[in-house]
Simulated assay, not measured.
Amino acid sequence: MEEVKLGQLDSQEVIFQRAIQFRKLVMLNNELSLKHKAILQLIEAYEGLVTVEELKKNCSDGVTSIRSGLKELEELNVVEKVRDRDEEGRWLPTRYKIKLYKTSYDK
């Protein structure tokens, strides 16, 4: 399958291609636990970029459990932290994105 770059296809086709990539690289990956897959599914639901607080709103797990899962995914090189500053130079909340494939947040 040829790699799809954002902007090359209409948005529905990009969404479809990302769903295929997600299924192949995440859901069918036997090296990831169900906990990891659930976190990644929630990140994907937020279009690939999410804070711990946003994840907490959508599950019964506590912040500590979510952070430990994200740390494990970082160690597996599956997600990465994204740190941005606001207009006044203050740090915004840390967000996480899936590294396995390109998202609209990649430059």
Rank of each mutant, 00 (worst) to 15 (best):
L6W: 07
L6E: 10
G7Q: 03
G7K: 04
Q8N: 12
Q8C: 14
Q8G: 14
Q8E: 15
L9V: 12
L9Q: 10
D10M: 09
S11A: 11
S11L: 13
S11P: 13
E13T: 15
I15N: 10
I15P: 00
I15S: 10
F16R: 14
Q17P: 02
Q17G: 04
R18Q: 13
R18G: 02
A19H: 06
A19M: 09
I20N: 06
I20E: 13
Q21D: 07
Q21Y: 05
F22Q: 02
R23K: 14
R23D: 08
K24T: 10
L25C: 03
L25R: 06
V26M: 01
V26I: 05
M27R: 11
M27I: 11
N30G: 06
E31Q: 11
E31D: 10
L32D: 07
S33Y: 04
S33L: 03
L34T: 12
L34K: 13
H36K: 02
K37E: 08
K37W: 04
A38T: 12
A38I: 14
I39S: 00
L40H: 01
Q41Y: 15
L42I: 01
I43Y: 01
I43N: 01
I43R: 03
E44W: 04
A45Q: 15
A45I: 05
Y46T: 01
Y46V: 01
L49G: 04
V50H: 10
T51W: 05
E53F: 07
E53Y: 08
L55Y: 03
L55R: 02
L55M: 09
L55D: 05
K56H: 13
K56L: 15
K57I: 08
C59A: 06
C59S: 09
D61E: 11
D61N: 10
V63Q: 12
V63G: 01
V63S: 13
V63A: 08
T64G: 14
T64I: 14
T64Q: 14
S65R: 06
R67N: 13
S68P: 04
S68M: 05
L70H: 01
K71R: 11
K71C: 08
E72C: 11
L73I: 03
E74D: 05
N77I: 05
